[in-house]
Design a protein around this nucleic acid. Structure first.
Lengths: 111, 111
DNA sequence: ACTTTATTTTGATAATTCTAGAAATATAGT
DNA sequence: ACTATATTTCTAGAATTATCAAAATAAAGT
């Protein structure tokens, strides 16, 4: 992971509509969702949705697989994990203090 | 956490310079870094740096504390954790498949 | 070939954002 | 009050981005 990649991924997730799209795909799991299903679910015009999906694709945050005329979109779980790692996994390494009580907790506690 | 907040935080981290600033603060730990120290370390002009810090502040990703004439900046560890939770913690909930083998791993394995 | 369905590309406009020099402000020491 | 240090605000130009209607493309059924 380099900083340009990480920043472009963050940027891709940095607009409410694209974050919405991405989270819908995270929720959808392995089955994914077609472009049309996303369009119905989120109420975004096709051309706009297509642009946003392209941005997420270029950032390697989602994948697409064609099934006849429909395109199935899926979240790329590996890349988001690497992104999160890049963001927080060097916590406190430049600190001269004792890091034992570093406030950041690397284990996510999903509620 | 709502989608506007999450998106604005992602957007704040979505430019290489700001991500660099943020990661420098993550690495610095509780001690934090002054604006001037960041300027020296990253080679960013003062006015540009100040704008970026303001963006990170508004997004609640960092905090600032004045010590005489210098401003100490620190990463807000709580907010980034909430952000990561928001991003991945609803993984697969809309899936009709068995989620047991969901590919996403909620526990970060920092290497 | 034609039609239908699904999605992307084109193109154009509006809006936002990045950047950094110059000037202004804030704080504290002399 | 004056000076020095640290940081922010002002300003403006360049660059990027978001949006979506309309046209184009892709795939498969009739």
């Amino acid at each position: 992971m380099n900083i340009e990649t990480a920043a472009s991924q963050m940027e891709a997730l940095g607009k409410p509509k694209r974050l919405d799209i991405y989270r819908a795909l995270i929720r959808a799991g392995k089955e994914g969702l077609s472009v049309g299903a996303l369009q119905d679910k989120l109420g975004i015009p096709g051309s706009t949705l297509s642009h946003h999906l392209k941005t997420l694709m270029i950032a390697d945050l989602i994948t697409q697989e064609r099934q006849a005329t429909t395109l199935i979109c899926r979240a790329n779980y590996t890349s988001v994990q690497q992104l999160v790692d890049y963001l927080v996994c060097e916590c406190c390494i430049d600190s001269s203090q004792d890091n034992a009580d570093c406030e950041i907790d690397a284990s996510l506690t999903c509620s």
